[in-house]
Every structure is written in C-alpha cells, then in structure tokens.
Amino acid sequence: MQIQLNHLMPIPLQDKLRQRSSDIWNQDVTFKPGSWVKIKAPSGTGKTTLIHYLYHIRYDYTGKVQINGKPWQDYNKNELALMRQQEVSVVFQDLRLFEQLTARENISLKNVMQSRPYYPVEKINEMAARLQVSHILEQSGSTLSYGERQRIAIIRALAQPFQWLFMDEPFSHLDEENTQRAAALIAEECKARNAGFILTDLDNDQHFTYDVHYHL
C-alpha cells in the first residue's frame, strides 16, 4: 500500500508553516510500502495533525493524501472502516483507550473487530509480558498510569493486520528500558507483516533502523 502526499498543507497552520522549510508540508512525498519512516518535528509544527491526516480523522487541509493512488476522500465509510481493520493501524499521542473497558478488553477490541480474532489470547499475553503489563491486563482503563496506557495502546495497535503503522510519539511516557522493549516488539511485528511505519517524535533516536528520515 503506497501513501502519497501532494502539497499537503494544514489550513490552520498555513501562515506559520510557509515561513519555514519542511520535508513534508507542501511537498510531494511518497512513502514506499514497507519502509520505516521517522519524522522528526519540533513542537507546534503539526506532528499530530499529520498523523491525523494520514489516518484520515482530520480533513482541514489543502493538497492531497493519496492511498494507493486514490485520495482518502474517495473512500466511503465502509471502505475506510475496512482499511482501518486490515491495512492501517495507529498509536495516538493521546492513546484513546476506552476507560470503561479493562486493558485486555481494549486490546481485544481491535483483535476481534474483524470476523475472527487476529491473534490468539496466548499471543496477546506474550506481548503484554514483554512490555511488562501482564499484571494490569484485568484493570479498568481508567486506573492505569500513562505509561501503562501507552504500552496497552501499542499492543492494541499490533493486535490487528496492517501494512502501515502510524505512531505519534509512542514512547513519550516510557523509560529507556521499556522503550527498547516496545520498539523491539514493534519492529518484530512490522517485519512479520512486511509492514512499514511512520513514526513522529521530537528528537532523534536509535530505536529502529529507519529507512528514511524527514524533518517536518
């Protein structure tokens, strides 16, 4: 699945962004299938906005986001839902877990959204164990710390098929050790699927062997 940006420009940030150069905004960019992409961005340059555009939950832009040569707008609600179930996955900066569900239920929500579970329970348990959140799986989402939520959100994003994984500062609340574990798990899962990812962060990092770097 190929992602192309054509002169993409967020309308609210237009004036600000025109005054500085960017590798992404107002450029023609193509993300090749399976490539691991790092986008480094200082605060306020539209990092989260970009992820939302890529995932098509914000639409206030000029230019185009093309998925397989077709703008997002041309996909209807059902096709979009299918894409989100099968082809693209996401770790939001604000995580977006359901507080009324337990950690395990939050994960399995994505796991069972398609007609049959993507991963067996054992696999989910194993991933939880690797990120050291096994003990909080049965706790309600509202009682979890931010770091715990972040790891649950990562596991949730991995509990579905995808060709692209979008991550918005996925390790912002994790210590170095947990970050390493999470990155290793993500890399493994992406390799298993031959999938690419787009990761946005404030700084440079060595968590992955990135194919491409961009400055936002």
Binding site: N78, A81, L82, R84, R96, F98, K110, M113
Partner: peptide, 15 residues
C-alpha cells in the same frame, strides 16, 4: 464520544 472512537478505530457503520 465512544461511538466516534469506535469508528476511528475502524468499526464499520454496518457493525
């Protein structure tokens, strides 16, 4: 809000 999040996570309107 919950339904919006479900849709964001990929729940189809039909579901």
């Amino acid at each position: 809000r919950e339904i919006q999040l479900l849709v964001i996570l990929g729940t189809a309107p039909g579901q």
